[in-house]
């Protein structure tokens, strides 16, 4: 990636303390994100996949400084933003935005669509009222909605339209980098395709960079250039799309891909499935050694003892596994 990286994350960790008892004594911590490192190039989409509770949303929020990371370094456009606070932090927030999973919950039901989209403009710009209104109409148009909807309320719209409103709001300040946190998970299949196409068009038009968080591996394959796979707070594999889907290296990636049902009965009947045993361990009490060792079909003694290092392989691929040569 080198110099062109717009976002650089190095050893990012986010631990949440666990308090117990009447005195609320700290008894442990949940390692939601543990030493995660990756780069995203300008104009690129990095997919971040994993099962629920693996820390993918926390990663996205920590990057946007919605949490204070426990350790690590976040660099946006070459500038270290890890320890920014107050006004300095507010200033860079215009460059990074977020699209949320649940469009129902992230829009204030008492505000009109127009004022929802104008809110970032109120906060960060000194536009006149008329200019603001013009910008709102322009944004509504950009996300494929009728600009005359600006006086309506969120409940008057369907899930897909609400997600478009959320996207318009995220675009209001012309950000460079957007974290899309499961933006299509709550939508029906036919509407999902509409929203994904919109995100792709906007990316081309405005030269946007996305971190696309999702659990839907087939959708991530469509939208992302490179994909990072996360398990129990740690990245296990990161590779360009083609490599990851045709030749996964980490045993967890292999199992995950084989578990995705295919809409083709002939292929479904002959596909080789890797059925993992058991459940994901609790992040408050992760296993020793490799986090995946409790469910891994090829784990050995060493895997239960030592945490595998995050190493770079050929062709821009990263893997954390003792068994991958």
């Amino acid at each position: 990636m080198g110099a062109e990286a717009i976002l650089r994350v190095d050893g990012l960790s986010m631990y949440f303390p666990v308090y117990r008892g009447v005195l609320r004594k700290k008894v442990g911590e949940i390692k939601a994100v543990d030493e995660v490192s990756f780069d995203i190039a300008k104009g690129e989409t990095l997919g971040l996949v994993g099962e629920s509770g693996c820390g993918k949303s926390t990663t996205g929020r920590a990057i946007l400084k919605l949490y204070d990371p426990t350790a690590g370094r976040i660099e946006l456009q070459g500038k270290d933003i890890t320890d920014l606070e107050g006004d300095a932090l507010r200033e860079i927030r215009t460059d990074m935005q977020m699209i949320f999973q649940d469009p129902q919950a992230c829009l204030n039901p008492r505000m009109t669509v127009g004022s929802i989209i104008a809110e970032p403009l109120d906060e960060h710009t000194r536009l006149k009222k008329r200019q603001k209104r013009e910008r709102v109409r322009e944004l509504l148009n950009a996300v494929g909605m009728n600009p005359d909807f600006e006086n309506r309320y969120p409940h008057e719209f369907s899930g897909g339209q609400r997600q478009r409103i959320g996207i318009a709001r995220a675009l209001a300040l012309e950000p460079k980098f957007i974290v899309c946190d499961e933006p299509i998970a709550a939508l029906d299949v036919s509407i999902q395709a509409q929203v994904v196409n919109l995100l792709e068009d906007l990316q081309k038009e405005h030269d946007l960079t996305y971190l696309f968080i999702s659990h839907d591996l087939s959708m991530v394959r469509h939208i992302a250039d490179r994909i990072a796979v996360m398990y129990l707070g740690r990245l296990v594999e990161l590779a360009p799309r083609q490599q990851l889907y045709t030749m996964p290296r980490h045993p967890y990636t292999k199992a995950l891909l084989s578990a995705v049902p295919e809409p083709d009965p002939a292929r479904e009947a002959v596909r080789e499935r890797i059925i993992l045993k058991g459940d994901v361990p609790s992040p408050a009490n992760p296993p020793s050694g490799c986090n995946f060792s409790t469910r891994c079909p090829i784990a050995e003694e060493k895997c239960r003892r030592e945490t595998p290092a995050w190493r770079e392989m050929d062709g821009g691929r990263f893997v954390a596994c003792h068994m991958v040569q």
Binding site: V189, A193, V196, R221, R241, Y245, L257, E262
Partner: peptide, 18 residues
């Protein structure tokens, strides 16, 4: 069926949306 991307078939440039 056209709106669903696949994990191992040919990747299309644009998803077919309804």
């Amino acid at each position: 069926l056209a709106a669903m991307p696949s994990v191992d078939a040919e990747r299309t440039e644009k998803l077919h949306s309804i």
